[in-house]
Amino acid sequence: MEHTAPMAARRMITAPLLHRESIGASYHVLTFDVPEGSDAQPGQFAMVRGAEWGDAPLLPRPMSYLTGGTTPSILIKVIGEGTLRMGRAEPGEPFTLLGPLGNTWRPPSRNRRPVLVAGGVGIAPLLYFAKQIAADGATPLSIYGGRSSRDLPLEDELSEISETHLTTEDGSRGTRGRVTDVLESLLDAGSEVYTCGPDRMMAAVAAICAKRDVPCQVSLETPMACGYGVCLGCPVPTTDGGYLYACMNGPCIDARLVDFSRSDHAPRKVATTAGGAK
């Protein structure tokens, strides 16, 4: 695809959990001990699974890198069995990490200001990216929203390195409303937008950017079985009527390629096939 970055070598490693930091009841930062280091770059992800989970859950779960290096970490939101187990893990528990997978955020053009739009746990790949931008001497603009103040994990870390606007739907923190309300007023012709969050939020952000002719990258979220291109379980509808595969062509991708009207990742019935098995 257009901006597939050169990939670091993918590896499967078993690493012990170094520590788990809980942020409220639903969010946890898990940090792993990987002495040989990880080449993970902002936007990339790992397939993560407890090495001692046994048969269930069977599949590893895709998680964006929050940091890389010798202590790679992830931010998880508890939504089901896999994330529940991660949220209960104790230091020393072994995990398998397959990564780094997928491509990275495409670096901002020289004359554009990066605008990061995050929803809830979607902060993970964007905070890592913000740190990289800040290390290069720039200050990104961030818009970070959640349902309430409890859904803004790591907001303080983000505020330290970026000009940050917070929004909550219940008004318990920052501006009452949605990230898109603030985006409308802050966006200018020199912006370059990066977004990660619920599908519907990314679709709205992409629509605003398209209208204003501002480049926008999204980080695709779909269930994944393998994470490296062999199961074909992660299709994302494209505007030309076909599919991209989130793990291979993404997760970071130009928003103009994605047909959000056909991409509904809300849990629903599995489509039936005329073509038979698989």
Binding site: P57, L58, L59, T222, P223, M224, A225, C231, L232, G233, C234, P235, V236, P237, Y243, R262, S263, D264, H265, P267, R268, V270, A271, T273
Partner: peptide, 9 residues
Amino acid sequence: GNPPERICE
């Protein structure tokens, strides 16, 4: 192939 979702555990 089929539209999403294709896999579910």
